[in-house]
Simulated scan of single mutants.
Amino acid sequence: MSTPLRLVIFDVDGTLVDSQSDIVAAMTLAYAAVNEPVPPRAEILGVVGLSLDVIFPLLMPQMSAQGHAQMCEAYKNAYMEMRAQAGVKQSSPLYPGALEALHGLQSEPDILLGVATGKSKRGLDKLIEGHGLEGLFVTQQVADFHPSKPHPSMILQAMADAGVEARDTVMIGDTSFDMDMAAAAGVRGIGVGWGYHGRERLSAASVLIEDFAGLRPVLNEMWKVSA
């Protein structure tokens, strides 16, 4: 019997790349644009992964929709400017082992790779170009076209694009939003220990890994069970 196609979907910020410095800096400028004090760093990183149109109402519920839109625009402009000045590889460096893991998985004929991120399409395109990741992901789901995580829309569309069933799909991410999205879509979630949410927030994950070297053994075990 032939091996079924498998789909491995990755979150981006906090999972593949460490963009926290630029995220916090852009948030600081977004708050400055509306003359409001910046929340603690941990609070900012705690909402990474959500779409911007959800983040600002969550952090600033007392502010008007116009104010939220102003903050969103200020954030986008600041982030783009910092990325342009520093370059993608410095602005959002890949975590150790990420590139090797991606290429290793892609080299296997029965494995397809995807992305599900709160980034915009423009932001993801720049990131992929900057790190030379073109051609790695058969499906790329971004905030422009979906409800914010943890709604399962991104994963459901990724599975439809790839033609892969839920039992053969896994979601890899660093936040509770990723793991809750996976659960909502009926797929298993692999939480990573190096991102922006602590282990205590990843209770919905099927398993946790501490580095990319631990990814393939976990996938092998999962797929053995589901075979």
Rank of each mutant, 00 (worst) to 15 (best):
A65H: 07
V115C: 14
A98N: 04
Q70E: 14
G67K: 07
M71T: 03
P61S: 11
E108H: 11
E81P: 00
Y75V: 06
L99Y: 09
P109F: 00
L50Y: 14
A65Q: 12
L59C: 09
K119V: 05
K121R: 15
G118S: 08
H68G: 08
Q70K: 15
A69N: 11
G97S: 10
E73F: 01
I44Q: 12
Q66N: 05
K121W: 04
V54E: 11
A98E: 03
G114H: 04
V88Y: 03
S120K: 01
G118R: 06
L102C: 05
L102H: 08
I44C: 07
A65R: 10
Y95A: 08
N77C: 05
L99H: 12
R83A: 09
A69R: 14
R83M: 09
L99V: 02
L113H: 05
S91C: 15
A84I: 02
G118A: 07
L102T: 06
A86I: 01
K89W: 01
M82E: 01
G67T: 13
C72Y: 00
L113W: 09
R83T: 14
V54Q: 11
S120V: 05
V47A: 07
I111A: 06
K89L: 10
F56W: 15
M63S: 12
E73R: 13
I55H: 12
L52G: 06
I44M: 12
A84D: 10
V88H: 02
A116R: 03
L105V: 08
R83P: 00
M71D: 04
V115M: 13
G87L: 06
A69C: 02
G114T: 03
M63I: 00
K76D: 12
Q85D: 02
A65C: 01
H68Q: 07
Y75D: 11
E81M: 12
L50F: 11
P109K: 05
S120I: 03
M80L: 13
S64F: 01
S51M: 00
L45D: 05
